[in-house]
Write a protein that binds this DNA or RNA. Structure first.
Lengths: 241, 241
DNA sequence: GTCGTCATTCTTGGATCCAATAGACGCGTA
DNA sequence: TACGCGTCTATTGGATCCAAGAATGACGAC
């Protein structure tokens, strides 16, 4: 128990587990199971679940249990629409506020993301699927955006954007491939463009770049999901034929 | 108990009470008090409080109780910034989707808001302060925007915008006066302009109008708070002098 | 007279216990 | 054999009970 009440710690742990895909969407969470797994009684378990429900990560079905929400394509698209707005606002606000230190952090995050992207593309050429690598790519991506959020110094935007971001991490699947290389690499270029607009102190420029970038990321994620769906449907069909 | 679990009903009731100002910001909520007030045990009370905490309406101070959050000026401004973004997005999306029935509803909401505004201005000239009337004005305002949210058909935007909106309803104070008449009436004109842009099927036009309108509403609210602060500080000072 | 310390009390956090609901299973009958 | 009914069990929702932490006030030392 790192800090605070057990209910809070538990909520954080569960949030992490859900968002990372460790607990897949659609699962039903048994209170007693969680309670013995985390060595606490059912009371804090239920309080933690209430919090997750308020965040939209799980849904209560009265007398039936709580289920980890799974997102439809529509909801995914919506999440990116919202994030695009919030993120463009954050970028606009952050631009005049960025200190040289912030810019340095941003550039470092940009490099780390570029490296992660290259690793991912190489992995794809090697024909392997490494969820761990994909997850690191995602985190490197987030790290870049987090620098901007932090510099904007508007806690509400940060909170809401991260809430929107959380919602689409729930798929424990990933895909790469030659057809996706371009989309992956485009993200890297966009990060660079955003950083340069910020460095040039152009709030409007940075704003539109940020918006377009997030929307483009959404299209990438949709392409990934399409590919995963195609890959997993085929075996099923051949298996059942 | 209308429906669902007691914890859920209770959470809704408390949310309403907090948002309407019935429970003022800064109050400490005693679990036992709530439990006997609502004739339930402390267990559902605490679950409801967890939900409110996740929504940001209250904060848990471990072993000390839960406190109704009060917003700083900065947070108020942030809420309006976020709402301006979300609302302009919703308006843009809604514009091509609005049916004639939607437009009729929007016009009706516009009229109701205009009436509420005139009542408020008249009240101010009569030198009275009627919180109930102010609250109806606020609700009429929200009703107009709700038509747009509904037409946009993007649940996530609606949820988040309403979350941002909730945060600034927590002040059980209001102010009117000749100096504010213009600001109040400007809102009416802006509603009209937004509706006309939507009717003219101009998503971009409606978008910028919506954005400017929300930001302008924020300035109005800040002016109101300033005036209230000025009014309440004076008696305090003369009282202590 | 003031400051610090210790005990008491009040309130929360957590555990356990009981009630109520939904689903599963089996039995009987058509 | 299939359908309907009743019971039985698994699991949640809610109440009560116990422990732990924080505020308060009294007492004593300086």
């Amino acid at each position: 128990m790192s800090e605070g009440t057990k209910a809070d710690d538990l909520a954080l742990a569960l949030e992490e587990a859900i968002v990372s895909g460790e607990i897949p969407p659609g699962s039903v969470l048994r209170q007693e199971h969680l309670s013995e797994q985390f060595r606490v009684s059912r009371t804090p378990v239920r309080e933690a679940l209430r919090r997750l429900a308020a965040l939209g990560l799980v849904t209560f079905e009265p007398n039936r249990g709580v289920r980890v929400r799974s997102l439809s394509r529509d909801e995914l698209r919506e999440a990116f629409l919202v994030r695009a707005e919030l993120e463009s606002l954050a970028t606009e606000i952050a631009t005049p506020k960025m200190t040289p230190a912030d810019l340095a952090r941003l550039e470092e995050a940009e490099r780390a993301f570029a490296r992660a992207t290259e690793e991912l593309v190489e992995m794809s050429h090697a024909g392997r699927q490494d969820l761990q690598l994909a997850r690191r790519w995602l985190l490197a991506n987030h790290a870049f955006h987090d620098v901007i959020y932090a510099a904007a110094q508007v806690p509400l935007i940060e909170r809401m954007a991260k809430a929107a971001r959380r919602t689409f991490l729930v798929k424990p699947v990933w895909a790469t491939g030659a057809d996706l290389d371009d989309l992956y690499r485009r993200n890297v270029a966009q990060h660079r463009a955003i950083r340069e607009a910020i460095a040039a102190r152009s709030p409007e420029g940075a704003r539109v770049l940020a918006r377009e970038h997030v929307l483009s990321s959404g299209r990438l994620l949709e392409a990934i999901l399409d590919k995963v769906a195609a890959q997993t449907r085929e075996p099923l069909l051949t298996g059942s034929a």
